[in-house]
């Protein structure tokens, strides 16, 4: 019973919700990447690997240049590079997209540790200085609103950026010509092709965008929330983002709601010092939540019709 009252108590603190939003954004960026990629018909379970690669190269660049903005750019590029591999393998070579995704994740885990050893010897990567982290910015005025100010307007730059990207993704997907074409390619590539749309270009663009967003999330994790790279530091967040995308029925808004739920689980875990329960049991929370959500709450959801199917021109 104490654990329950502890958690209830926690729910009324602004700190918890501030942490929830930050944790949610960490998941939201790769989840949005997943939405874009899968809307174009390419199954993407490689967000984990792209995020990890982004985190690593973000730290490397920040340590080298002492410039968090440039480092964030490098992280995004690194994520995009991994995404390009996934794109080439699954779009050009028509490989099984799940196998390719798993390979990316294994590859990223191996490569990052391998490179830590090659670049930094067998020691630690080292820590990024406080002033070289992606900054937290309080929005003047708004940050003074009781409760909400702390939750919404005392956040990292990436959090604000992510919320803008969220709105942008929704508008692009459902209001613009580009979005119409992305969805057409994901639903019926043959129809899109016969209408004169370049299916491959759209799919490449969508997959690479997912890499940019995952890399951004990796940067947020490594040089925003944390200040160094630790092997396997993404710890399954890419996979949870995948679940959030499905839970959100392949929509940006839905994915965001799912990310908030998972973020809340994470925030409660991070505050475990005041909850009298094993932190490890609490850690199971987001994953069990995902299972329960998949099992019952959302019911069956339908992916884009051509999700996961390689496109062979001229086929019917």
């Amino acid at each position: 019973m104490t654990a329950v009252t502890d958690i209830l108590h926690l729910l009324f603190t602004a700190n918890l919700w501030q942490a929830t939003l930050a944790a949610a954004v960490l998941l939201l960026l790769p989840a949005l990447g997943g939405v874009i990629s899968e809307r174009s018909g390419v199954v993407n379970i490689a967000m984990e690997g792209m995020m990890l690669t982004g985190a690593f190269f973000g730290v490397v660049a920040d340590l080298a240049w002492h410039n968090p903005l440039a480092a964030t750019g490098v992280a995004m590029l690194a994520g995009a590079l991994m995404a390009t591999v996934h794109a080439v393998v699954s779009i050009q070579f028509r490989a099984d997209q799940i196998v390719s995704g798993i390979a990316i994740n294994i590859f990223a885990a191996g490569l990052t540790v391998f490179l830590v050893n090659r670049i930094y010897g067998l020691q630690d990567v080292g820590h990024v200085g406080q002033s070289e982290l992606i900054p937290y910015i309080n929005v003047p005025g708004l940050d003074q609103i009781p409760f909400l100010g702390k939750v919404l307007f005392q956040q990292n730059v990436i959090v604000y950026a992510a919320l803008i990207i969220l709105v942008l993704t929704h508008v692009v997907l459902f209001r613009t010509r580009l979005g119409l074409r992305i969805r057409a390619v994901g639903e019926h590539p043959q129809a899109a092709d016969t209408a004169g749309i370049n299916v491959f270009a759209i799919r490449y663009g969508a997959v690479i965008t997912s890499g940019l967003l995952s890399g951004l999330s990796g940067a947020f994790l490594a040089i925003g929330i944390s200040n160094t790279f630790v092997p396997n530091m993404t710890d399954g967040r890419g996979y949870i983002a995948l679940a959030a995308m499905i839970f959100g029925k392949w929509t940006p808004g839905g994915a965001f709601i799912a990310c908030l739920i998972f973020g809340l689980g994470q925030a409660i875990y991070d505050n475990n010092s005041i909850i009298h329960v094993s932190p490890y049991l609490l850690s199971m929370l987001p994953y069990l939540l995902t299972l329960i959500v998949l099992a019952g709450v959302v019911g069956r959801s339908t992916p884009p019709a051509a999700d996961g199917l390689p496109y062979v021109p001229g086929s019917e």
């Binding site: 393998v89 490989a95 294994i106 391998f114 090659r118």
Partner: peptide, 25 residues
Amino acid sequence: NISGNLVFILQALILFSIAANFVGA
């Protein structure tokens, strides 16, 4: 003096290679 993690990279490369049938291509 080469990280044992090379094995993971090797494993991923084998997966890519099988799945995409690069050799066949």
